[in-house]
Each structure stands twice: as C-alpha cells, then as structure tokens.
Amino acid sequence: MRRLLIAVSLLLAAPAAAVLPDEVLPDATQEARARGLSKDLRCVVCQNQSIDDSSAPLARDMRVLVREQIAAGKTDAQVRDYLVERYGNFVLLQPPVEADTLLLWVGPFAVLLLGGAGLIWWQRRRPAVPAGSDAPLSVTERDELDRLSGPSN
C-alpha cells in the first residue's frame, strides 16, 4: 500500500518536477497564474519545452522572473509583454502572426510545397518509357553494342 501511495504521489508531482520548492509563491492564486504563464513560455535554451517543464538554469531564472512580476502586482499580459520585450516573440510557445514571425508560421508549409513542386518537376523531366516495353536501340547504340560484345558467330 505504501508503495502505491509513493507511486501515485510521484505521478501527480511529475508535471511540477521542474519547479523547485523555493520558486513556489506562498499565495496559491498567484502560483496558479505563474504556472499558467510558465506553460505558455518557451525555454530559450531547450527551445521545445516550456519553462514550466524545463530544468535548465535559464528556465529557472525565467520562472523566478515571472513570479517576481506577479508578486509585484503585474497582470498576465504585462508579464508576457515584459518577457517578449526582453527575449523577443520567440519566448512564446505560440508566437503571434506578425511580419517577424511569418517565417515561423509559413516556413513549414512553404518547404512542403516547394518539395512537392520539385518532385513533380523531376517526374515530368524524366523521359517517359512505357512500362513493360523496351525502347528500340538507335543505330549508334546498336553499333556500340555490337562493338562491345565482340564478333558475332
């Protein structure tokens, strides 16, 4: 029974593994806000993790910064704007569609379309040979084949 309780406790604590006890705000409401914000902010070191999930030292610094801003009475929008001003739109896991982030949003689709267009172009450039039939040899090819195969009997 005791092992089961420990296992359940570890599973429940798993999402909070990166947040250290000394980072947690004493006010539960403020801590919930901080956790919500941290889930939407990208760790600039890990790049594909939120600062809430990352154990990188910079992610810890960013979590502390978020909590300091919240404790100072800033709104969620003000905290997010502060971090964007400091780190750029890259810090947001879902950056806004703007001129400087357009490549992030359009880039994958452009690569896919260009790859498809290149594949179609390559297919059309290949000479068409009917399936199951061999094209007849030209006179030059026949002479070259005869020369390479040696004298015929």
Rank of each mutant, 00 (worst) to 15 (best):
P136L: 15
A117S: 12
R124G: 06
P15G: 08
R67A: 01
A18N: 02
A72E: 12
L20C: 09
R42H: 05
G107I: 11
V84D: 04
F109S: 13
E98S: 15
Q123D: 12
P57W: 01
A77W: 04
Q30R: 04
Q78N: 10
Q47T: 14
D52Q: 06
V139W: 08
G118S: 10
T101E: 05
D27R: 04
A56H: 13
S50V: 01
V97I: 15
Q94S: 14
L20Q: 15
S9H: 10
D143H: 03
L41W: 01
F90Y: 13
R142N: 07
L65N: 04
P127R: 10
P96I: 07
Q123R: 12
S9T: 11
I120N: 00
L11N: 08
P130L: 11
R147C: 02
Q47L: 14
A59M: 05
R42S: 10
R33Y: 02
A56Q: 10
M1D: 09
N89Y: 12
L114M: 13
G132C: 13
R35G: 03
L37H: 00
A110S: 14
E31D: 13
D22E: 15
Q30S: 08
R86G: 03
R124H: 08
P26F: 02
P21R: 09
G132E: 14
L113I: 14
D52A: 12
M1R: 09
E85C: 10
R2E: 14
A56D: 10
I120M: 09
E85A: 15
P151Q: 06
